[in-house]
């Protein structure tokens, strides 16, 4: 009691000091936030609105004329845009299951009691950390039609050499051709050029999928496996009824992440094919880039970016609704 009255008697000066200190703290706090906030507002938020403005313009160094939705309607009537969206879809449909499937398979093998596990992990991860332009350059050489090692290998095995990244024909057409058959053009399948890019993509990203899957596998309590073993469950049954359901949040995260990744894919495709042959590897991001970089169509490529973003958004919502419902979060 005595102490309390004493402090109350002396409050006047400390209150002013405390308020001063508080104001100082707030000022310091805002000053510390300022650089990051400023950068994010200027280079992340503001460009969304500026981009929308550009997309409504006929842009030549500035807004030459305001054209309203003309860039958008033009895009919707541009067969090349639809083609690029189609190529992006095929690219995603081929590469996402490959990356996730192979990633899960190898992660599951690595999760067994394996010697030299860190070594294997590192080796599978190396392509992912490597500079993508450099590795794509190396792969262009592996795929080279005249003196590439892949064709040398095919030749040694008695097969005819292939054009790989330069081949616009579908893979089914090529297989049918080598068997002496002809296929109707709609049954040709994805071009060998695109499939070659898918193979490269799998080589790069499988290590990432493995790393994430291994982290996910580590969170499954080992008692569940022991219980399953006691019940006499075989390896496959354990995998199907213990591993897969409990891993589903990880798989779902990877699915979303990988799908978005395939829509963003640019560096390796641009280095290996620049979108050719005959636009067979022109994904949406390559198409937008070329409109910007080669044709200087700012308004048009801004409009295209919004359309692509809209597609990704729809796809992500769809995945959340349809796939997300089957994810087991217990």
């Amino acid at each position: 009691m005595v102490q309390q009255t004493e402090t109350m008697a002396r409050t006047h000066v400390p209150v002013v000091k405390a308020r001063q200190r508080r104001v100082q703290e707030i000022a310091l706090g805002y000053a510390m936030l300022a650089p990051a906030l400023l950068l994010l507002v200027v280079f992340e938020f503001y460009p969304i609105f500026y981009g929308l403005y550009i997309s409504l313009c006929n842009w030549r160094l500035g807004c030459n004329s305001f054209v309203g939705a003309a860039n958008f309607t033009r895009a919707l009537h541009d067969p090349e845009m639809w083609h690029s969206l189609w190529i992006t879809t095929v690219y995603a449909l081929l590469s996402v299951p490959l990356q996730l499937g192979l990633g899960l398979f190898l992660a599951y093998l690595l999760f067994q009691k394996i010697r030299y596990k860190p070594f294997f992990r590192t080796v599978f991860f190396l392509p992912y950390v490597t500079s993508s332009v450099a590795s794509a350059a190396v792969w262009s050489y592996l795929y080279s039609p005249d003196r590439g090692p892949l064709n040398a290998l095919l030749g040694a095995l008695g097969f005819q050499p292939r054009n790989w990244l330069g081949e616009p024909l579908g893979i089914f057409t090529l297989i049918a051709q080598s068997l002496g058959l002809t296929l109707p053009s709609w049954a040709g399948g994805p071009s060998l050029a695109l499939v070659s890019i898918v193979i490269y993509t799998t080589w790069v990203f499988v290590g990432y999928a493995i790393t994430i899957f291994l982290a996910g596998l580590g969170t499954i309590p080992p008692e569940l496996y022991d219980a399953a073993k006691v019940d006499g469950a075989s390896g496959w049954v354990q995998f199907r009824y213990v591993t897969l359901p409990l891993l589903s949040p990880t798989t779902f995260f990877l699915l979303i992440f990988t799908v978005i990744g395939t829509f963003k894919a640019f560096n390796h495709i641009y280095v290996m094919t620049q979108g050719g042959p005959y636009n067979e590897t022109t994904t949406a991001s390559i198409f937008i880039f070329r409109q910007l970089f080669e044709s200087n169509r700012y308004g048009y490529s801004a409009a295209l970016s919004f359309i692509l973003f809209f597609c990704i958004l729809l796809l992500t919502i769809f995945q959340n609704r349809v796939v997300g419902r089957r994810v087991n979060y217990d």
């Binding site: 703290e25 706090g29 906030l37 938020f45 500026y50 981009g51 991001s285 910007l292």
Partner: peptide, 30 residues
Amino acid sequence: MNVPGKNFLFLLILATIMVPNDLVLVPKVV
């Protein structure tokens, strides 16, 4: 630190994760 509006600013910052790089490519070049 205890700064007013901190939580709002943090949410604002987190929201930028959803802005894909390609969406803002053209305006950033301009």
